[in-house]
């Protein structure tokens, strides 16, 4: 088990490195630096800012510094000099948990501070919507499958097809429209409501969880239908077990496994889906922050939050892989 965890954590490293590499490469392609969008700034100021953030260094490899140190300090220092570049320094700081200053704040605030401020809000949102997706999706799927081709089944099919196909920003905006036009609820302006758990989290959380809920419903339904037809269910019924025992002990437990397998992608979907929902409902979470950073071309914030999101997704996948073993002894022993 420990070996498995270590292997999986190590496998995360190349993925995260590739994400950083791709993001950094793409950010370099974008036109316009972070400091030249506002009103005219003196070239000397820009040079100073670039120097302050290390943007005057080469992007990838600092060959000049390599040659320089090779002749004076020897090969080891030269290699260190080679990586004295924007990317090299960024990665070196990132593994120590320092994601650098945000450009928007001109260096007074770091990216990790911003993440620390805004992530709890997104986490609350994500937890509520995951709970919603599980608590509603699972029973809805079971009900649909056990009462196949009845009104319950059709209801669960309709709900899950809508939730599965319609993008969240569409359902979210429709909900906002209904809330304001039909119920006269004004959109939330006061940011302090997001500081603890509050009722305001429910509309965005339910919309965010809708897709996951629908996916869980669909999967549970087909999984229960599959298990229902197995020989061991017939055996269980033949030996006279009551419906309740057959359903609870034989059908549900066995149909749970395929559902767990999608929880990894589901958590990823909740994490990356959050920034669309947050911008629809104006939730000041990390997703809104990311969208804001895109708008203002705050590259360090974009890099930092992308790495953070990728880390969350990777960790989510590991947790789910671990949970297979807890549920299914066959996987644990293989």
């Amino acid at each position: 088990m420990i070996g498995f965890i270590i292997r999986r954590v190590l496998a995360m490293i190349p993925v995260l490195f590739l994400v950083a590499l791709i993001t950094f490469f793409l950010m370099k392609q974008a036109k316009g630096g972070p400091f030249d969008q506002e009103k005219e700034v003196a070239p000397s100021t820009i040079a100073l800012l670039n120097r302050k953030f290390g943007l005057d260094k080469p992007a990838w490899l600092n060959t000049a510094e390599f040659n320089n140190r090779m002749s004076s300090d020897g090969p080891l220092a030269a290699v260190r000099g080679l990586f004295d570049s924007q990317f090299g320094n960024y990665m070196l700081n990132a593994v120590q948990g320092d994601l650098g200053p945000t450009y928007a704040s001109k260096g007074t605030e770091t990216v990790q501070d911003k993440i620390k401020q805004t992530f709890p809000i997104s986490l609350r949102l994500g937890l509520i919507s995951l709970t919603f997706a599980l608590v509603v999706g699972f029973p809805l799927g079971i009900l649909g499958a056990l009462r196949q081709n009845t009104i319950f089944d059709y209801f669960s099919l309709i709900i899950s097809t809508i939730g599965f196909s319609v993008p969240t920003f569409v359902t979210g905006l429709v909900l906002l429209l209904v809330m304001s036009k039909v119920f006269g609820v004004a959109p939330i302006k006061d940011p302090s409501v997001w500081e603890g758990f509050s009722m305001s989290y429910f509309p965005p959380a339910i919309i965010l969880g809708l897709g996951t809920m629908a996916y869980i419903t669909r999967l549970t339904r087909s999984s229960v239908l599959e298990v229902k037809r197995q020989d061991y269910i017939r055996t269980a019924k033949a030996k006279g077990l009551g419906d309740r025992v057959v359903i609870m002990r034989h059908i549900l437990r066995n149909s749970l496994i395929p559902v767990i397998t999608i929880l990894g992608p589901a958590v990823a979907g909740l994490v990356t889906g959050s920034f669309i929902i947050e911008s629809v409902f104006r939730v000041p979470g990390i997703g809104s922050e990311f969208i804001g950073a895109i708008g203002s071309r705050d590259y360090s914030m974009i890099m930092g939050s992308t790495l953070f999101f990728s880390l969350l997704v990777a960790l989510g996948n590991i947790m789910v892989d671990l949970s297979y073993g807890l549920i299914d002894p066959r996987i644990r022993n293989s």
Partner: peptide, 15 residues
């Protein structure tokens, strides 16, 4: 394992 929508957003911003 790339978070795809994030990737799209970054590609769009870049190009």
């Amino acid at each position: 394992s790339l978070p795809d929508i994030l990737f799209f957003i970054i590609v769009q911003t870049a190009f």
